[in-house]
Design a protein around this nucleic acid. Structure first.
Length: 426
RNA sequence: GUGGGCGUAGCUCAGCUGGUUAGAGCGCCAGGUUGUGGCCCUGGAGGUCGCGGGUUCGAUCCCCGUCGCUCACCCCA
C-alpha cells in the first residue's frame, strides 16, 4: 500500500496546536464581542440540502458550491451561514420572540481557485439580527465589527467600513432604467459588485449582454455605472425623489454610527453593492486602508430572504467576517499574537513506584480545576523540567522515593525556582 | 484558463556559469549535573536533492515531461 498524501486537499488547512491556539484566540475575540452585544450563539450542519443555496442570480457563491449527490440526495457543504440561519428561523418562526440576535462561527466551503485571502475552506464569524426593520440593527452590527477591530488593534487608519444601500440604488433605477423590470435588480447588483474588479467597460458589457439577466440598453448601462460614482450621500440624494426612504435610512444610520463614536470608521460608498442576490437594503464591507487585501468582512440587509425560501416575512440584517483575510492583515501589521501554551502544573513521578502517588496528586489538582500534565513515561528530571518549562507550567510537583517515603511532593515554582514540600494526602 | 517563481534534512533556506564524503540555522535525540528547566557547550540521528526521462566521463545544477506549492492575472466572496 502506498503512503498517504501528507498534504490536505488544496485550499484546506491543518491546524497544529500552535495554529489552533491562534485560531482559538481569534474566535475568542469573536465570541467576546458577541457576548458584549448579547448575541446568542447557534450552529447548524455543515452539510445542507443543496437547494437551500441554489439561486438563479449568477452569484459566484452558488456557482462554486461544493456539492455532491449521495443516495439520490443532492447535498452541499455550506458556502455561507445565512441560509442555514434563515432555515432555523423559519422552522420556529411562530415561537421566536423578535428581534432575534444570533451569531455563529462556522466553517464554510467554496470550490474555487486559490488566491491570496481565499481558500476552499474558511471560518466565518456571522452575526445577524432578525425581526428589526430599522437601521438601529445595522448600527449595532457595525458597532460590533468596530469593537472587534479595535480589540485586534486595528484603528480607523487601518480598516474602514464602506457602506451604501441597495434600496437607494433601486430607487434610482426603478424611476428610470428598470421601471418595468424590477426582477432585473438583483442580478444587476451581482454584476455591479464586480465594478472595482473588472472595470467599467466589462461591467457595461455584462449589463447589456443579450443573454444575461439584466439586458440594459448601452446608454442605460452607462448611466447605472455613472450613478455609482457619486461621491457623497448628499449627491446621491439629489438623484432620487424627495422623501426617499433609502436616503432617510442612510442618514439615520450615519447619525447613529456617529453616536456610537464611529464616524471615523465608516464612509459612504455608492459602489458597494455586495455579490449576493438576497441583499435588499443597507450593504457594507470593511477594507484594509492599504487596499492590498480583499474585503475583511461584509454584510447587509436581506428583508426578503425568508419569503424567498417560502417562509413568513421577517426583516433581517447580518454580516460575515472571515478568518483568512483578517489574519493576513494582522500578520502584515505584526498584530498576530504568538499564543503560548499555558498549563498550570506538571506532576512528575521519578519512577513507577511513585506513579500511584503522582496520579492521585494529579487527580486532586485537576479536581481543583487546574490544568495538570502528568508525566507519563519514565524520563529524567532534566527532561521533565525542560518539558514543563516549554509547556508554560507554573509549578512542577516532583515525587521521588525520598518524597514518597515522607508523604510529600517537592513543589518547584518554575518562575522563581523556589521549592517547598507539599503533603500528598492533606 | 494565462504567465512568473519555487520544490534540497521535521521547518526556513544555502549550495560559487555540472565535479569527489550535499551544508547552515532552528527543531529533534543524547551527554556535560548517579534527582532539577530556561542560557551555554559537546556529540548524534536525519536527505531516493518532488517524480520520470534526456544530454554528459560525471547532474541538486543543463534540457524535456510530469506532479505539487506559490504569486500575479483572468474571475470573484
Amino acid at each position: 500500500m502506498s503512503k498517504v498524501e501528507l498534504q490536505p486537499p488544496r485550499g484546506t488547512r491543518d491546524f497544529y496546536p500552535e495554529d489552533l491556539r491562534r485560531r482559538a484566540w481569534l474566535f475568542d475575540q469573536f465570541r467576546e464581542v458577541a457576548r458584549r452585544f448579547a448575541f446568542e450563539e447557534v450552529d447548524a450542519p455543515v452539510v445542507e440540502h443543496a437547494e437551500l443555496f441554489t439561486r438563479k442570480a449568477g452569484e459566484e457563491i452558488v456557482e462554486q458550491l461544493y456539492h455532491f449527490t449521495l443516495h439520490d440526495r443532492h447535498l452541499a457543504l455550506r458556502p455561507e451561514m445565512t441560509p442555514s440561519i434563515a432555515r432555523m428561523v423559519m422552522a420556529r418562526a411562530g415561537a421566536l420572540r423578535l428581534p432575534l440576535r444570533w451569531f455563529a462561527i462556522t466553517q464554510n466551503w467554496r470550490y474555487e481557485r486559490m488566491t491570496r485571502g481565499r481558500r476552499r475552506e474558511h471560518y466565518q464569524w456571522n452575526m445577524d439580527v432578525w425581526g428589526e426593520p430599522g437601521v438601529a440593527a445595522e448600527a449595532e452590527l457595525i458597532a460590533a465589527i468596530c469593537t472587534l477591530l479595535g480589540r485586534l488593534g486595528l484603528g480607523p487608519g487601518d480598516v474602514k467600513i464602506r457602506l451604501s444601500s441597495r434600496a437607494l440604488l433601486e430607487e434610482v433605477l426603478r424611476a428610470d432604467v428598470l421601471r418595468d423590470r424590477p426582477e432585473a435588480f438583483a442580478p444587476l447588483c451581482v454584476v455591479i459588485d464586480k465594478l472595482g474588479k473588472i472595470g467599467e467597460e466589462a461591467v457595461v458589457d455584462l449589463l447589456t449582454d443579450p443573454a444575461g439577466a439584466v439586458r440594459l440598453a448601452p446608454g442605460a448601462a452607462r448611466g447605472v455605472v455613472a450613478a455609482l460614482g457619486v461621491r457623497s450621500l448628499d449627491e446621491a440624494a439629489q438623484r432620487v425623489p424627495a422623501g426617499s426612504a433609502a436616503v432617510d435610512d442612510l442618514r439615520r444610520l450615519f447619525e447613529l454610527l456617529a453616536a456610537y463614536g464611529l464616524e471615523d470608521r465608516v464612509v459612504f460608498d455608492a459602489s458597494i453593492v455586495r455579490g449576493l442576490a438576497y441583499y435588499t437594503g443597507t450593504v457594507f464591507e470593511a477594507f484594509d486602508a492599504g487596499g492590498t487585501l480583499r474585503a475583511v468582512c461584509g454584510g447587509g440587509r436581506y428583508d426578503r430572504l425568508l419569503e424567498t425560501l417560502g417562509g413568513p416575512s421577517i426583516p433581517a440584517v447580518g454580516f460575515g467576517f472571515g478568518d483568512v483575510v483578517i489574519q493576513e492583515l494582522l500578520a502584515d501589521k505584526g498584530l498576530l499574537p504568538d499564543v503560548a501554551r499555558a498549563i498550570d502544573d506538571v506532576v512528575y513521578p521519578f519512577g513507577d513506584a511513585e506513579r500511584p502517588a503522582a496520579l492521585r496528586l494529579a487527580t486532586r489538582l485537576r479536581a481543583e480545576g487546574r490544568s495538570v500534565d502528568l508525566v507519563l513515561g519514565s524520563v529524567k528530571p532534566r527532561r521533565a523540567l525542560a518539558d514543563a518549562d516549554r509547556a508554560g507550567a507554573q509549578r512542577v510537583f516532583l515525587i521521588g522515593p525520598d518524597e514518597a517515603a515522607r508523604g510529600v511532593a517537592r513543589v518547584r515554582e518554575l518562575a522563581g525556582g523556589a521549592e517547598r514540600d507539599e503533603p500528598l494526602d492533606p
